[in-house]
Nucleic acid binder design. Structure first.
Length: 467
DNA sequence: CTATGGCACGGATT
DNA sequence: AATCCGTGCCATAG
């Protein structure tokens, strides 16, 4: 018995590692599915009945008291309170509601995928036949919300006059996000202009610039633009400013807080966060509560009945059952490992980035995953897995990817932005470099220029004339 | 000559 | 191994 145990254990360790890593990289949502699967397929696994806290209705683990309600009333330390909280009750219902509302009016169509979201808006204006075409068009959007097929093809396929297809397309384009379903960024922006023109005044030449000369804009050939349009550079500046502030060439790209989503431009829809962070008792001066969401609503354990049944089992069933048992054991261990890692990670990160969490972006301390890994004595790839694919809800209700805690350029960029917004008169890039140097940030002039461009801020000489 | 954008390279990060 | 980021160099505009 002992021998066989050893034998099984050895190959297990590698399997164990592999499993832990895959589980680590899953988000709560994904993991909870995984657990459901495992529960359904493995008779050795059992979900223990849950106990809920009488005060806040949170599901409790084991015999531990409720971590929130039993927390001391007066707190005077900087360390965050950390605890794990089970899935189903992880956010009090009202809070979750609010969060959804927030997501809808401030961020982007969340909840469902883009095609469905758009389709629901327009379905009522269309005949059933038109709906078919619309649905077909919507399935051919790329990640940016642009249409990837030629309407002509669609027209042929559905034996419908092109004009009719185009009409359906334009219905789509007028839905939220405005411009979705266009064939090109230019087209999308033109649609957005149309829609904006109902309520706003559009600067002269804006339309012409978008229509004919958008290439020049992206190449920043502003003076050239003025020449082509035969107008003053001031008009061009105004138009360009309007464009960069109001138009979005890629309708589907959500503006998450600031303009930035290159790493995960594909999915901006966040459902359940993996971790919640909020100040204790909602007082910002209190320590932060870090609530790591568990994918379970109870305790996972080996079914004792199953264990004893093995002994009396027929020999042919025995092996099968034993492997089930091993798998179950492994699974539980892995999940515990996962939680342990995440908890330790969050503890570190939250302590380090407290200012960022409560005060906002510019207080983000640049940290690399490697550094944290070293401090926690784990391999950096472990951290990578733990960080990827997960989201955190901040005290201000905003849900951001956990990876944003590790951005190493963002802080410089925000400082640049701040300097420019506080400037009394336009500063050239070189001058900004000097100011940055005084703050202890040493960067090249070229770098400042890049950040400025990323923020869509015009060059100094252009900023000067526009109010 | 100064201020900036484009291109592309090397080193760090993932 | 693949990517991202800061930079240096050069071209261009004024």
């Amino acid at each position: 018995m002992l021998q066989s145990h050893q034998q099984i254990l050895k190959p297990l360790t590698t399997a164990h590692l592999a499993r832990t890593m895959t589980l680590l990289s899953l988000s709560v949502e994904e993991l909870s599915q995984e657990i459901d699967n495992e529960l359904a397929n493995n008779p050795a696994l059992e979900l223990l009945e849950q106990r809920t806290c009488p005060h806040c209705r949170r599901v409790l683990l084991g015999s531990a008291p409720c971590p929130v309600c039993s927390a001391p009333k007066t707190l005077d330390y900087d360390e965050p309170i950390i605890f794990v909280s089970p899935r189903d009750d992880f956010v009090p219902h009202d809070m979750w509601r609010e969060n959804q509302d927030y997501a809808e009016d401030d961020i982007s169509p969340a909840e469902e995928d883009l095609p469905t979201y758009v389709f629901r808006q327009i379905a009522t204006e269309l005949t059933p036949e038109e709906q078919k075409v619309a649905a077909y068009l919507l399935t051919h959007l790329n990640d940016d919300g642009l249409l990837m097929i030629d309407p002509i093809e669609v027209a042929q396929y559905y034996h419908m006059p092109i004009s009719h297809v185009l009409q359906i397309q334009s219905t789509i384009q007028r839905a939220e996000p405005v411009g979705v379903g266009s064939r090109s960024p230019e087209e999308a922006m033109l649609i957005q202009l149309d829609s904006l023109s109902e309520g706003y005044e559009i600067p002269p030449y804006t339309r012409e610039i978008v229509k004919e000369n958008i290439g020049l804009v992206s190449r920043k050939q502003y003076p050239m633009l003025a020449k082509v349009l035969n107008t003053t550079s001031k008009n061009v500046q105004i138009a360009i400013r309007f464009i960069s502030e109001n138009l979005n060439p890629y309708p589907a790209r959500a503006h998450w807080g600031d303009v930035r989503s290159p790493t995960q431009s594909k999915s901006f829809v966040y459902h359940q966060p993996d971790v919640l962070i909020y100040p204790y008792n909602n007082d910002i001066n209190n320590p932060l509560v870090i609530e790591v969401i568990l994918p379970l609503s109870g305790t996972l354990r080996i079914n004792p009945m199953f264990k004893s049944a093995i002994r009396n089992a027929e020999s042919d069933k025995r092996d099968e059952w034993r492997s089930d048992l091993e798998k179950a054991n492994l699974f539980i261990k892995c999940i515990q490992q996962r939680n342990y890692t995440i908890v330790r990670l969050m503890e570190k990160v939250a302590t380090l980035q407290r200012d960022f969490i409560v005060n906002g972006e510019k207080y983000l301390i640049p940290v690399t995953r490697a550094k944290i890994a070293k401090e926690l004595n784990v391999h950096e790839s472990t951290i990578s897995r733990a960080v990827g694919n997960k989201t955190v809800q901040l005290p201000n209700r905003r849900i951001i990817p956990l990876s944003s805690f590790f951005d190493r350029s963002l802080n410089i960029r925000t400082i640049v932005k701040e300097i420019i917004s506080n400037e009394s008169e336009p500063l050239s890039d070189a001058e900004i470099v000097d100011l940055l140097g005084e703050k202890g940030v040493n960067v090249a002039r070229r770098t400042v220029a890049k950040y400025r461009a990323m923020e869509g801020i015009l060059p100094a000489y252009m900023r000067s004339t526009v109010a």
